[in-house]
Amino acid sequence: MHPLALLLLLSLCMAGASFKICAFNMQGFGEAKAGDAQLMGLLVKILARCDISAVQEVRDAKGDAVLTLLTELNRYQALYAQLGSRRLGRGTYKEQIVFIYRVKAPIRFGEAGDFARGPFAARFHAPSTGRSPLTHRAPRNAVHEIDRLYGLCRELTQRWGTQNVMVLGDLNAGGAYVPPSAWGSIRLRWEPSFHWLIGDTANTTVRARTHCAYDRIVVQGDEMLGAVVPGSAKPYNFARSLGLSEEEVSAGEAPHCPGKEG
């Protein structure tokens, strides 16, 4: 796992329609990976499963790699568009968070907070935009950063006037980063309006040597919870599904992929 993982916030308009959402850590996606035809074919198959994909660790300064991915995705299964954050991070290492979504879902978006490398908030509802800064620190700060997401969710609730907020992505919410003794200090965990859809015993990695629930999906409010198909929030082991070997997974460097259907 990359030492500076990203978080995502997604606020959904409850429209009554059924759709699939996933978060996918692409671990340094840029021009090199975009030029690998075999890898791109796998990425397209993964992303085409979902109506909204929250893609993490995009290192694409020019924006060409994401456009290439979008072109290939639309050639495979139209119609998709993308919305990316500004390049986030301190120092020379910069990454983006990119929402890839079917165009039937218009959006509002923004960034918020003062993390070191950030979550990116998008509201799939109305075609207007807004911005403010947002970031996330190293895995060793996972307990503190996950707790701070509680306040960020409250901010989104007030700003956008909706309780229907989803947090998804690589939270480093497992293994040594969040020991069992630490959960009591994380408000996002024990505040009753938040519901954790991927449990502590889940494995959100696809490598044989790891078994950790780093990636999570958390929804706020009973309306949002009621919109989730029971049992649909779970990791998607793309390696097993696509018949990839451990060596192929390591070469692709994309070990995280929780998903939600609802």
Rank of each mutant, 00 (worst) to 15 (best):
P3G: 08
L7Q: 14
L8E: 14
L9K: 02
L9Y: 02
L9T: 14
L10G: 10
S11M: 12
L12K: 07
A17V: 13
A17S: 13
S18D: 15
F19L: 15
I21C: 00
A23N: 09
A23D: 09
A23R: 04
F24Y: 13
M26C: 12
Q27T: 04
E31P: 11
A32S: 13
G35D: 04
Q38R: 13
L42A: 10
V44C: 03
K45A: 09
L47S: 04
R49A: 08
R49K: 14
A54D: 01
A54S: 03
A54C: 08
V55F: 04
Q56H: 06
A61L: 09
L69M: 08
L70A: 05
L70G: 05
T71F: 11
T71K: 11
T71Y: 11
E72Q: 14
E72T: 02
R75W: 12
Y76I: 05
A78S: 14
A78C: 14
A81E: 15
R86C: 13
R86Q: 14
R87Y: 08
G89R: 04
G91F: 10
G91D: 11
Y93Q: 15
K94V: 03
Q96Y: 05
F99A: 01
F99C: 01
I100W: 02
Y101H: 15
V103G: 07
V103D: 13
K104N: 13
P106H: 10
R108H: 12
G118R: 11
P119I: 15
F120G: 00
F120S: 00
A121V: 15
A122K: 07
F124H: 06
H125T: 10
A126F: 10
T129L: 15
T129R: 12
R131M: 14
S132A: 14
H136P: 05
H136E: 12
R137S: 15
R137Q: 15
P139F: 01
A142K: 03
E145D: 15
R148T: 01
L149C: 07
C153N: 06
C153I: 03
R154L: 08
R154S: 06
T157Y: 09
R159Q: 15
G161M: 00
V165R: 04
V165I: 15
M166A: 15
V167G: 00
V167K: 02
D170K: 02
D170Q: 03
D170E: 04
L171S: 04
G175Y: 01
A176W: 08
A176D: 09
P180W: 12
G184E: 05
L188P: 03
W190I: 06
P192D: 01
I198P: 03
D200S: 12
A202F: 09
Y214N: 02
R216T: 03
V219T: 00
Q220N: 07
G231Q: 00
K234H: 10
P235L: 06
Y236P: 01
R240V: 10
L242Q: 13
G243S: 02
G243D: 06
L244R: 01
S245N: 04
S250D: 15
A251Q: 09
A251E: 06
G252Y: 10
E253G: 03
E253L: 10
G259M: 10
K260R: 08
E261V: 11
